[in-house]
Amino acid sequence: MADYGQIDSVTIAPELPARAPEPVAERGESLFARHVSEFMRAPGAVGGLVVLVALVLTAVFAPWIAPQNPYDLSQLDIMDNVLKPGEKLGSGITAWLGTDDQGRDMLSAIIYGLRISLAVGASSVLIACAIGASIGVLAAYAGGRVESVVMRIVDLQLSFPAILVALVLLAVFGRGVDKVVLALVIVQWAYYARTVRGSALVEKRREYIEAARCLALPKPRVVFRHLLPNCLPPLIVVATVQVGHAIALESTLSFLGVGVPVTEPSLGMLIAHGYNYLLSGKYWISTFPGVALVIAIVAINLVGDRLRDVLNPRLAR
């Protein structure tokens, strides 16, 4: 949504504005505890957190939780194909969410799909965050031409929709989980660079950075040990919400057929798969993976929204 610099003042940024968090030195255990108790005051966010933890655990322990391994062909029976939710598979397992065209139990497929969706979302955000934050803080610290060139690139990239950029990248790269992650990293780093640069600019002028400079500490040390940690709170908020976006983006790309390969189907892939059956009223193949996706994304957003309130003193009054 950024443009080329002329109307910055009117651009309504949904992202966090630059803000001034308290220096790290001032926060101790008590502050962390206060954040936790503050967070717990919102029942919606706590619910979101519980759901999120449950989903992550389900994804991690998928092989022990899922009724069948949907990608072990020996466990599949083509006779079980497109069963309605609640019908029994030949093996005696009840397919609570129905089966797909190859006789796969949808519940199991969703649990495994969740695994891939969450992994792609989380890993792309972690990598993009590390890269973007480093670039952002370095740009802010360096200032001058370096900063303006970096920020121009950030603005330019952010002015094009993530979905389009990712689509083109994947068209060039080809399919694959690693390639999806790479594409998601490339479309996301700019958010973090902008967020961190915003708070770093504020932090840079503070006394403790001045002090660190006066001590003639090596530059990387000032930037990464002093400046960056103080820019973390807004970054955490953006990153949390961004995990939800990354998952949605991945599922969209997979739905469009440029994302993960058929052998490693994410939730988006499952939905795309059920698309062909939707029109004949066999709704469950597309609907239930979508519901899982929606639950995951909503849970992440609830947590992210609350984090924003807790970590941003200006909004928290």
């Binding site: 976006h245 949605a248 599922s251 969209t252 739905f255 988006g268 597309s286 929606v294 909503v298 957003n301």
Partner: peptide, 12 residues
């Protein structure tokens, strides 16, 4: 936050 394509499918 909801994935757009899935909303479309549900509308269909």
């Amino acid at each position: 936050s909801l994935p757009n394509f899935w909303i479309g499918l549900m509308l269909i």
